[in-house]
Design a protein around this nucleic acid. Structure first.
Lengths: 222, 222
DNA sequence: ATTCTATAGATTATTTATAATCCGTTCAGG
DNA sequence: CCTGAACGGATTATAAATAATCTATAGAAT
């Protein structure tokens, strides 16, 4: 049984464990607070404790899990406050990204329009998973357009809070209405108005962070 | 010989290895590009491969080392471009921090003044190590004053580039002149002028990133 | 009844051993 | 002289076994 896996192996064992846990955490299958027992995960994935520890260590670096010595790891609890704080940082970073990315997008916003169209389509179908995926793609395109590796790295470190907020706000807000801001942003970038694009991005993101989540939805502390 | 170590043990082995490597990298003893051989480090610190791997994994999460599968880890090479990019992000984040921190500092800037005095003293003695330490303390106080954990976490992730720039600019710039900006920032915070404090912080940091480093000082790629 | 202690089970931390991979060197063939 | 396959040392990756620590429970002492 392990033979087939071995034949298909591209990444290291630790990498595969990491990807599996990453997927399960981001999809919400592993809720915040869930314990991650090393030997149990190792058995599930037909490997040993070492690679699992390494995967957990990397996920801890991404701030997705927290580990206490001799007590183990669990999926990080994210408070409503964490999400508010993360969105303020994200708004600030994307404002900068919008300004920096203007030279790149002026007159060539085809990719952005494609992403925005996909977002709109998913919003109309109320397909949260697809909406989230394309929404993140849209914003990532802008951050990548800034051509600043450190900016991208920093932005990526906020991904967990962003996905969680998108998940928590499911059904609470009008996705179609929220996504309309994207078209104004695209227009500003297309015309080379970086200041405006940055301002719109900041407003768009900050507004969203304030929307749709009541306290009862907040992940409860253990 | 291991007995004495064992008696004094507070942290786990992995944590001690991490702290040792962290210190040696930040102090410049381990230059960018230096290979970090797991078993060699393990022997030096009287432990085995496992804890060393864990320490390296955590340092990779802090972006201090890079690891290639089956090829090992080395202290990260930081290009001049990386430093420029990091300083732009840092300037943006500290501008935000300055604005957010105003309520906290208005009328109570004693800690900031103490740090700024220590910086000035070190600048006059041309004591780079002490200057760096207090300079980072000064800026950290402001970021902490913003009361935003995510902001602090994000700011911390830029620490390596910041220290490296401070190190690279040694002897190339007038430390006394640069640090004078601190007093204007303190004054703005003391008076509750957050917008001005933010603007001054942005200028101060961005200026510094442009100063004093010629291309020949840039860490060379292997 | 309450608090303290001891014990057992579960889990993490570390060590030791083994497998897989990389990389420079050597040497055969052209 | 050049090319490429094969060997060997060095290092990382994984596995397996053991040690250290935590947590809950049960029982004894007060």
């Amino acid at each position: 049984m392990a033979d087939k896996d071995h034949a298909l192996q591209r990444d290291s064992m630790a990498e595969r464990v990491k990807q599996d846990l990453l997927r399960r955490i981001m999809s919400g299958e592993l809720r915040p607070g869930t314990r991650l027992v090393e030997l149990q995960i190792a058995r599930e994935l037909n490997t040993s404790q070492g690679p699992v520890r390494e995967a957990l260590c990397e996920l801890e670096g991404l701030e997705l899990v927290v580990t206490e010595p001799y007590k183990g790891s669990r999926v990080r609890e994210v408070t409503q406050q964490d999400i508010r704080e993360a969105y303020l940082i994200r708004a600030t970073l994307e404002k900068l990204a919008g300004e920096l990315a203007t030279p790149r997008f002026q007159g060539s916003v085809a990719d952005l329009k494609k992403a925005a169209t996909a977002i709109l389509s998913a919003a109309r179908k109320k397909d949260i998973a697809t909406y989230t995926r394309h929404d993140i793609t849209f914003h990532r395109l802008i951050v990548e357009g800034a051509s600043n590796r450190i900016l991208l790295r920093t932005w990526n470190s906020l991904a967990f809070e962003v996905r969680l907020q998108l998940w928590l706000s499911r059904g609470k807000i009008d996705l179609v209405a929220v996504q309309e801001a994207h078209w104004k942003i695209i227009d500003a970038l297309d015309k080379g108005n970086g200041k405006l694009a940055g301002k719109l991005l900041h407003e768009h993101i900050y507004e969203f962070s304030r929307s749709g989540v009541s306290q009862s939805d907040a992940p409860q502390q253990k």
